[in-house]
Amino acid sequence: MTFSLAVCSEMVFTDLPLLERVERIHAAGFAVEIWDWTTKDATALVATGAEFTSMTGYVTGDLITDGGADDLLATAAKSIPFAQAIRCPSLNLHGTGLGEGGIPVRPVEVVTGDMWLAAVRTLSRIAELGAANGVTFVLENLNTEVDHPGTPFGRAADTLALVSAVDSPHLKMNLDLYHAQIGEGNLVELIRRSAPYLGEVQVADVPGRCEPGTGEVNWPFVARALADTGYDGVVAMEAFASGDSDIALERFREAFTV
């Protein structure tokens, strides 16, 4: 089983300008992921020759308020031409827009039943938008204990419930195992339950959010469990380098070569 390995350009080679980071990641044999597209030049990204597997697929909005849902749909629609220009097939979403330091713009303390129903309606509209434009949106889980307090639908169990409720090939899960380890644990069972809905998997070790091999997770074991489900899609390192970025990339490659 061979995964498509990608690296988030926002978190490695951080002493270099972004385009040079993309070039270094590409030269090392990995695909590339980016965050906020509004600060980037699509033509310059394409000129690097890199393959892009994921980018943030909205600018503002949320899943649960009428105005937030409309903003999410509108900015998701604006994100699609950029994704098409760089030939990026997956556009990443969160339970709500994130502000400075990853803090939710609209934090939620208690998620109600009405919020769940509103989120399913919003994501159904997102899936229709993806189908109309030939792209796939992926919904990422986020931990609320350390990095993103107040994010609604932050657990992987939540994103799985929402994605399975919509049940569209144009809305899948971005299963972030770093966030899941902090918030839920039991990663292998989580992978098995999520397998039918996976559009992407992201990894970083815990604690510290650095490359695999720097923390508590047995990544080769997790990688084998993921391969055993039949998953052969993108596994992306969304992690800081604990030291040298080239070494961090090689540690990631070693952990997910199965």
Rank of each mutant, 00 (worst) to 15 (best):
M1R: 10
L5M: 08
V7Y: 03
V7I: 13
S9N: 15
E10K: 08
M11H: 12
M11N: 12
F13T: 00
F13R: 01
T14D: 11
T14N: 11
L16Y: 07
L18K: 06
L19S: 09
V22W: 00
E23Y: 03
R24I: 02
A31L: 08
A31H: 11
V32G: 12
I34V: 13
W35R: 14
W35C: 12
D41C: 07
D41H: 02
L45M: 10
L45G: 07
T48H: 04
F52T: 07
T53C: 05
Y58V: 06
G61Q: 05
D62T: 11
D62W: 05
L63T: 00
A69V: 11
D70Q: 14
D70Y: 13
D70L: 14
L72Q: 07
L73A: 06
A77W: 06
K78Q: 15
S79I: 09
I80H: 01
I80S: 01
P81F: 06
P81N: 13
F82D: 02
A83H: 01
A85G: 02
A85N: 03
C88A: 05
C88R: 02
G95A: 04
T96K: 04
I103K: 07
I103Y: 11
V105P: 01
M115G: 03
M115L: 09
T122K: 07
L123K: 00
S124W: 05
I126H: 00
A132N: 08
A132S: 15
G134Y: 03
L139R: 04
T144K: 15
V146G: 09
G150E: 07
G150S: 10
T151P: 06
F153W: 08
F153M: 06
G154R: 06
R155I: 14
D158L: 06
D158N: 13
S164H: 06
A165Y: 02
V166K: 00
D167A: 14
D167H: 10
P169L: 11
M173I: 08
M173S: 02
L177A: 12
A180V: 09
I182A: 05
G183F: 06
L187V: 03
V188N: 14
S194L: 01
S194R: 04
P196W: 03
Y197F: 14
L198E: 09
L198M: 13
G199P: 10
G199K: 04
E200M: 15
E200F: 10
V203H: 05
V206Q: 08
G208V: 07
R209V: 11
C210S: 10
R224I: 12
R224S: 13
A225Y: 07
G230P: 01
Y231R: 08
V235E: 02
A236Q: 08
M237G: 14
E238G: 09
A241Q: 00
S242K: 13
G243H: 10
D244I: 11
S245E: 06
D246W: 08
E250Y: 08
E250Q: 15
R251W: 01
R253K: 12
A255R: 00
V258F: 15
